[in-house]
């Protein structure tokens, strides 16, 4: 557990790095406006009455929170990871007595404060003026944070797995695209998952997608009871564990490959 001691330094350095890239972050945030467009689409549909129980206010509340949660549960390591492996920066990392996963994990968490500062106020203002409503009891806040952490961990280890493919194939980023699109569709980013056909919604309870975005959204909207959250946490952390183990396996194999063919 001595690597824990490294985190303050890593988080500080990577937070400074995120400030260095603040312009880029703003552009990213602005480019992620698809949820707003979807919101407008749904709003025009609700003019003739609620859609499957969703009122205009429900859609506004939902999509504003999508924007915030996407920033707070997002992970953006795949490009760094891919470049490190393919360009040989990984060699330098392997020479130091610290597993490179900690670099990526620290970088992930170090990004969130800036995201919150940039996205939090506008979303809060919009929520206030548009009359969004979040019915989550305050007592569920610790659970919400735990669920957000779980969401980050799933996405993080998925990206570590896909990134590790770069040990064998040059187009790991293309695989990432597939994950991005499927996740965008099925995680609740574009469409609330309970608007899918019931069979799909039911299946999504067991697949990982709901747990990287929709679950924390559902909690903030006050839709889940404590037992439901508990069950969600169980499934969510099981997926996190699954992808963690898969990453360990792929990474160990990949390093062996890397050490065999060189970089």
């Amino acid at each position: 557990m001595r690597w824990l001691k490294v985190y303050p330094s890593l988080l500080r350095a990577y937070f400074n790095l995120s400030l260095e890239y603040r312009g880029q972050v703003v552009i990213w945030i602005l480019s992620g406006i698809l949820p707003l467009i979807m919101m407008l689409v749904w709003l025009s549909l609700t003019e003739s009455g609620p859609v499957q129980g969703y009122t205009a206010q429900d859609f506004i509340s939902y999509y504003l929170m999508v924007i915030l949660m996407r920033r707070m549960c997002g992970v953006w390591i795949i490009w760094d990871l891919n470049r490190d492996i393919r360009m040989g920066n990984l060699s330098a990392q392997l020479l130091r007595p610290l597993d490179p996963v900690h670099l990526h994990l620290a970088r992930t968490f170090a990004r969130h404060p800036l995201q919150l500062i940039l996205v939090g106020p506008p979303v809060a203002a919009a929520a206030f003026f548009l009359g969004a409503r979040y019915a989550m009891p305050l007592a569920q806040l610790p659970l919400l944070l735990l669920v957000m952490l779980g969401a980050i961990l799933i996405e993080f280890f998925v990206q570590m797995c896909i990134g590790a493919l770069a040990f064998w194939i040059t187009q790991a980023i293309a695989v990432m695209e597939v994950w991005f699109y499927i996740r965008a569709l099925l995680s609740g980013w574009v469409v609330p998952i309970d608007l899918f056909p019931p069979a799909v919604t039911a299946a999504l309870q067991y697949l990982p997608f709901r747990y990287v975005l929709s679950l924390p959204l559902e909690i903030t909207l006050g839709r889940l009871t404590l037992p439901q959250i508990g069950y969600g946490l169980l499934v969510q952390y099981s997926w996190a564990l699954f992808f963690f183990l898969l990453y360990r396996l792929l990474w160990a194999r990949g390093i062996r490959e890397y050490s065999a063919v060189g970089a």
Binding site: K5, S9, L10, R12, N16, P97
Partner: peptide
């Protein structure tokens, strides 16, 4: 660390080692 002053890398290495 390419986009940060070298001092940051020194401090990170200090922690890592």
């Amino acid at each position: 660390l390419w986009d940060l002053p070298a001092m940051e890398s020194f401090l990170v290495n200090r922690a890592i080692y």
